[in-house]
């Protein structure tokens, strides 16, 4: 009896978790892998240059509000969708008659970036617009602003603005930077232009958060991914094998002008596993600002420490 007792006791105590055995490395060890870090709360916008494979500029994403198109005949005004900004159109032309008590409909810029799909595409001189400045990187609401454009010339925009409830207003002049896609303006510190994008012929991809409008769910939502330079950069998404993509293939592709071809959906969140999973089937062919071709495929959304917000990807130039 004692022996049986001892035997069963030992048998039951013997079972425990066994150490795993390491698994050999798998993957394309020779590929050119690049990692760029936006921060685990996606705090930064990164401007990436394909030719040098480096981030040539970066900024905290909430430090600007509006981008004003910089061409001599440019007139588009874009919201900072990286912080979930929205605009509401009023029928007033006087700032003091808008105080926010009327019901508002919030409009968002379409992430494709086509001028006619921008919320403020049809803006009119002196008409008052209410801006929801969105949220900070920690999720705090940044408040509301009312503004109108009082003048537009070849060289600058003049706007008048104030907080939603205020009756005193500020006038700001935003100079058009012709070397850039847009001039960036912040309502912080009494209103000032800020330097965000590098010159338009120097960068290709922007790693950033942006607002995507989910059509089925009728919900705008802050996503994280890649938008392209609206000046010349064109992208094509394919499921072709990464290795098989060559110059002949790339040069005949029907590129679109959409800014969000790469977008956010090269990864998805698995609620069961509670992690982001990379969709490695998606290959992107990029025609750069220098008119060169690259192929790109994502490998990861986490850094070596397991922090999210650090996309890593394979990048190869496609040469004839």
């Amino acid at each position: 009896m004692k022996r049986i007792v001892l035997l069963t006791a030992v048998a039951a105590l013997f079972a425990c978790e066994k150490k795993e055995l390491p698994k050999p490395f798998t993957g394309n060890g020779s590929a050119n892998t690049i990692s760029v870090s936006m921060g685990s709360d996606y705090a930064n916008q990164l401007f990436f240059q394909l030719s040098s494979e480096t981030v040539i500029a970066q900024n905290e994403r909430s430090i600007w509000d509006l981008a004003f198109e910089s061409g001599a005949d440019g007139r588009e005004i874009m919201l900072n969708s990286a912080k979930y900004m929205a605009v509401s159109i009023t029928n007033e032309t006087s700032l003091s008659s808008v105080n926010g008590t009327t019901p508002v409909t919030w409009l968002y810029d379409n992430s494709k970036g086509m001028p006619d799909s921008l919320a403020l595409h049809d803006w009119e001189l002196n008409k008052v617009y209410i801006l929801d400045r969105g949220q900070s990187t920690t999720g705090a609401a940044l408040g509301k602003i009312k503004f109108h454009v009082t003048a537009l010339t070849e060289n600058d925009y003049t706007i008048e603005w104030g907080t939603l409830s205020s009756s005193t207003f500020t006038t700001s002049v935003i100079a058009k930077q012709h070397t850039h896609n847009a001039s960036f303006f912040s309502f912080n510190n009494g209103g000032a232009t800020v330097s965000i994008e590098p010159p338009k012929d120097q960068w290709d991809l922007c790693f950033t958060s942006y607002t995507y409008y989910f059509v089925e769910e009728e919900t705008p939502y802050l996503v994280t991914g890649v938008l392209s330079n609206r000046n010349l950069v064109r992208i094509y998404e394919t499921n072709a094998a990464f290795e098989s993509i060559d110059y002949a293939f790339a040069s005949t592709l029907a590129f679109t002008e959409d800014l969000d071809v790469i977008g956010y959906d090269w990864k998805f969140y698995d609620f069961g596993l509670e992690t982001y999973i990379i969709d490695s089937e998606k290959i992107y062919v990029v025609r750069s600002v220098e008119n060169r071709y690259y192929k790109l495929r994502f490998l990861d959304f986490y850094d070596v420490n397991g922090a999210k917000g650090t996309p890593s990807f394979e990048l190869e130039e496609i040469v004839p």
């Binding site: 798998t26 993957g27 596993l273 992690t275 999973i277 490695s280």
Partner: peptide, 11 residues
């Protein structure tokens, strides 16, 4: 699960 596409790490 080992994480795609290279399966060399896991959470």
């Amino acid at each position: 699960l080992p994480r795609a596409p290279q399966f060399n790490s896991a959470f």
